[in-house]
Design a protein around this nucleic acid. Sequence first.
DNA 1: ATGCCAGACAATGTCTGA
Length: 258
Amino acid sequence: MIKVATFNINGVKARLPRLLEWLQETRPSVACLQEIKSQDEGFPIQDIEAIGYKAIWHGQKGFNGVAILADGVEPVEVRRGLEGEPEDEHSRYIEADVFGLRIACIYLPNGNPLPGPKFDYKLRWMERLRKRMREISAEEVPAIVTGDFNVIPEDKDVWSPSAMAADALMQPESRDAYARLLGDGWTDALDLHNPRGGVWTFWDYQAGAWQRDHGFRIDHALLSPEVADRLVAAGVDKEYRGREKSSDHTPVWVQIRD
DNA sequence: ATGCCAGACAATGTCTGA
């Protein structure tokens, strides 16, 4: 069984104890991290290797940054960054082959405030992502595109649709772009296993959101048809949101038959 | 209407985020 997880870590250096304990307690085969908020040279690879993982990462000063960790084997990097905007220097995409799977780890732009350049960038980035995902589909490799999509797919995926109505995460344009990915043949694994919704992956640090369970679902795992056929389970490691110095996201995982 | 909270950077505040 292969377990592929994603975790928006919100600062890999500030969160290192949480990351290491999560890896050791849940032992995912592959762990995709977002918002490492570290330059390449500051990534704590020694601590990660000390507990048996190998990794590739794409860092950036101060914010963004993504990484793919694998239990005992080095992920083979396929690409970093998306095509289409050569001037875009945000570290938001890294892709690798590992355990016979193509894994893409993404940190999709938030898009707030809107309207404005950040929302425009989000929508352009989603179209660039779609183009890459269609290329992966054409390869017909078993693939998982996972990470922080910064899209609340449907009203059932948020504690209060009205409270979030003006947010970039649930604008019709954001949702339509996400729906187009699914329309291309990708399966939202967590949604498949929780069709009635009510499953959150993010709770804001502010306004007591965690205590009030004011969360929403923005961390996703999209499966190619070759992987969807092998899906055994999907879930959220909710308890990690309640720990000391936690990220504002929880890990999301899928289990895939060998 | 705004900030709430948090991390990084390199201040003792600013930027960024969701």
